[in-house]
Each structure stands twice: as structure tokens, then as C-alpha cells.
Nucleic acid binder design. Structure first.
Lengths: 147, 147
DNA sequence: GCGAATCGTAACATTAATAGTTACATGAAA
DNA sequence: TTTCATGTAACTATTAATGTTACGATTCGC
């Protein structure tokens, strides 16, 4: 299956929004992420439900961030997206009758649960402010290189 | 995305094979994992390439395990399957021009790399013998309950 | 009010990845 | 020489993400 790239998408969008005073339209965001405005609305709508952004209709409307960059983490976004399933590998059957398969599932589930816990805890340590900061550094470096 | 369930499948298969003296046919294995014999051949073929099992054609042929249960780990099987990609979540674009997106990708890549490293290291600690043992316990418990 | 800009959303199409199926060739054993 | 088995190519089906089209609902500026 295709990978879910919404987390990466909304991060990209929300950081751009954080650098703007004015709201950004779905069209502009779509251009920026090389996708379609409807996809942007669909995805950003989930962030709105989670109270992370607001949207306004009509002239000079669009999307605006309404969250503290220091408090919102990658996990909050992942959560806002509905905590989509993380792994592309899974068990052949859930709740098998076969005891062998049960033992196999248990071992795999354990390992995946640990990896998931680590990932989630990592997500919780990264704030949007941190990412904005990282971007600023990249930007400074980029400008230096251009000289 | 549909999840890749081959690791779980081959583990199931190989543990059944470990309990048999005779080779098991693709048909029997397919029945056991509720799939198609061709799928079994395709998948087990990868394990054969890795030297974990052998196959024989013709009358009384089939699949046989040829590996030390104490030495083969989940990782070896994952590896034999070609180390399929683990995550169902990924970046919108690889190598984006946008510096914001680069910062986002870097943060996500980092987190995923750590989770992957943990998973792989977990895979390396679980041998087939351990799983067979776990199965034996489940079996004993199951028989107890039936009394 | 009118018209343009903009989001909201349903319905459908496309794409990508896994899994399943059909068909037939090849080889080994009874 | 027939039967049982794997080997493999080619095609189909399934599933989930993503993209597209179409149109309704709001809001702003004139």
C-alpha cells in the first residue's frame, strides 16, 4: 500500500502558516505541497477538529494556525490525524486458533508495541517550535552558502 | 496500505515444519495459513534463497527446515524476505527543495530510524527456538484447560 | 444585492502495494 | 509413464492512500 504522508504534509503546511500573519488559502498550501486544494482541506480539517488551526471562508479567508508552537508536538499532529497505523508489517490473522500462530503473533506484537512506544515518545519530544528553529538554522546556513 | 504479513506467515510455517520429520507440501502449508500454494512457494522460495529451508520436487517432496532453531532469529527471516519497509507512514517527498520540508523530513526520519533500530534489535533477540518454546507452553496450558 | 473568493464535502477515479489465481513447465518417485 | 510436487510467469483482486470533479455554503468588497 501507499504510505501515509499526511503527517509530513501537515507539518510542512503548519510551519509555513506559522511564518505568516495572513491566513493561507488551500490553493496556496496545495501548490506548496504539490497536491490538490481538496486534499489540503480534507487533511487540515482534521487539525481544525483538534483545535490546532482555524479556517475562514470567503474573501481573504484561509487557514491560520491557532496553537502555541512550544506546546504542540509531532504527537499532537499524529493524534489529530487519527493515529493512523504506523506499521506496514502485520500479522497474517488476528486471533488465530492455531497455537503456533498465537505464539508468533505474541512475539511480533510485543516487538512492534515497543517500537511504537518509542516512536510515540519521540514524537512527544519534538515541538513545532523546535522544527521552526531547525528550519531557521537551515535557512541561515543556506544564505551563508549563497554568499 | 495493505500490511505485509509474510513475516508472520513464514514464522508460522517454519515452526510447523520444525515439528515434522517429513517435508510439508505447499498445499498443506497453504491450508494451514489459509492461503494459496503458489503464495507459499513464492514466499518460502525467499527463505530457500537464504538457506533456511530446502525444497524437493516430486513424490514425497515438499519443504523442510534446514536451520538451527537456536541460531535463526526473527531478523534473519525479515532479512530473507528482503527487509521490506517497516513503516506505513512516510515523507511527502524525499529530497525536497523547500527548507521547511527538509527540516520536517529530518525530524521524522530521525524518529523513524530510532524506532526501526529498536525493532530490528528486538527481532535479533528472538530465536525460533524461543518461539517453539513459547508454543510448547501454550500447548501445555491448553491441554491443562481441557482437563 | 451581486459577484468573486474561499472553505466543506460527497462522489468518484487513480495509484501503489500486497495477496490471490490460473496456467503450464520441470523434475522426481512409485 | 503416471502422479505428485515445486518453479515461475502473467494476470486479477483487494485494499488503502491520494487525487479529481462538482457543487453547495459563506463571507467579503463593491
Amino acid at each position: 500500500m501507499k504510505k501515509d504522508s499526511r503527517l509530513s504534509s501537515v507539518l510542512h503546511a503548519i510551519l509555513h502558516m506559522a511564518e505568516q500573519d495572513k491566513p493561507m488559502t488551500s490553493d496556496v498550501l496545495a501548490m506548496c505541497m504539490k497536491t490538490n486544494p481538496v486534499v489540503v482541506r480534507r487533511t487540515m480539517g482534521l487539525l481544525r477538529n483538534a483545535g490546532l488551526v482555524t479556517s475562514e471562508r470567503g474573501h481573504s479567508g484561509g487557514w491560520r494556525i491557532c496553537a502555541d508552537l512550544n506546546k504542540v508536538t509531532l504527537y499532537d499532529l499524529h493524534d489529530a490525524l487519527g493515529e493512523p497505523s504506523i506499521f506496514a508489517i502485520g500479522n497474517r490473522h488476528e486471533r488465530p486458533d492455531c497455537l503456533v500462530e498465537q505464539a508468533v503473533n505474541a512475539a511480533l506484537d510485543d516487538a512492534f508495541a515497543d517500537a511504537q512506544a518509542l516512536l510515540i515518545s519521540r514524537f512527544k519530544t519534538v515541538t513545532l517550535a523546535k522544527l521552526a528553529d531547525d528550519f531557521a538554522h537551515r535557512h541561515a546556513k543556506y544564505r551563508q552558502q549563497k554568499e
